[in-house]
């Protein structure tokens, strides 16, 4: 009788552990963008296989949990930055300078979003720049100032405080098929200018 009870307890423990741990780990594995299949280029992160036939199961599950229409390989590439070039988390209280170049592309957009990829609701109606909107210097280099207070030149407004992301989307770019081999120098640098 006692041995029977012990066996039932072990079975219940086994099932509870298996189901609980299995479901919880699956939930957390696809709650955000999975680490699997991620390519890091400087401060930018990208998931080059998310827009192809050979998408991995974690990315597929992550995308299926919401209304996602990822960019296709060959259509474009999305790069996300949550940190600056020194590895510090992006903070709305600071001022950032985005400089450098963009890869060969037919068009690109750079926007500021929250952690879920939504634009912030700011008083000024600008959440990003496209390559046609941005004003370039004499050497055709990119120079965008991102801060929560007005800046001269290409000003990208930030939320007054808290974390945010930069999202760079390259449309019709040849690097979308070999994003993993792209060098950091070909993407814009993110430098923290100052932090009051």
């Amino acid at each position: 009788m006692k041995a029977e009870a012990v066996r039932v307890f072990h079975l219940a423990y086994l099932i509870a552990l298996g189901a609980g741990l299995g479901l919880t780990s699956a939930h957390f594995a696809v709650a955000g963008r999975p680490l699997l299949g991620m390519a890091q280029i400087g401060a930018w992160k990208t998931w080059p296989r998310s827009g192809g036939r050979d998408i991995d199961p974690y990315m597929r599950a992550y995308l299926a949990r919401g209304v996602h229409l990822p960019l296709g390989v060959g259509e474009g590439l999305e790069l996300i930055a949550e940190q600056d070039d020194q590895g510090r988390t992006l903070d709305g209280r600071c001022r950032y300078a985005l400089t450098g170049s963009t890869p060969t592309t037919r068009g690109w957009t750079l926007s500021v979003t929250d952690a879920d990829g939504r634009p912030f609701r700011l008083p000024l109606d600008r959440s990003g720049f496209t390559d046609s909107e941005v004003v370039r210097g004499e050497n055709a280099a990119l120079n965008i100032a991102a801060a929560s207070w007005p800046q001269a030149g290409n000003w990208l407004p930030l939320p007054a405080s808290g974390r945010f992301q930069f999202r760079l989307r390259l449309y019709d770019t040849p690097i979308s098929t070999q994003a993993g081999e792209t060098r950091a120098e070909s993407l814009p640098r993110i430098e923290r200018t100052d932090c009051p």
Partner: peptide
């Protein structure tokens, strides 16, 4: 022994869940 068996079961549940989410999801695009 039960813990090890539970962990193996957890791995199986994890894999099956990940594979079933896209098939069963009603909130996808």
């Amino acid at each position: 022994l039960a813990t090890v068996a539970g962990l193996v079961l957890a791995a199986i549940v994890h894999i099956v869940t990940i594979l079933l989410i896209p098939v069963l999801s009603a909130s996808d695009a």
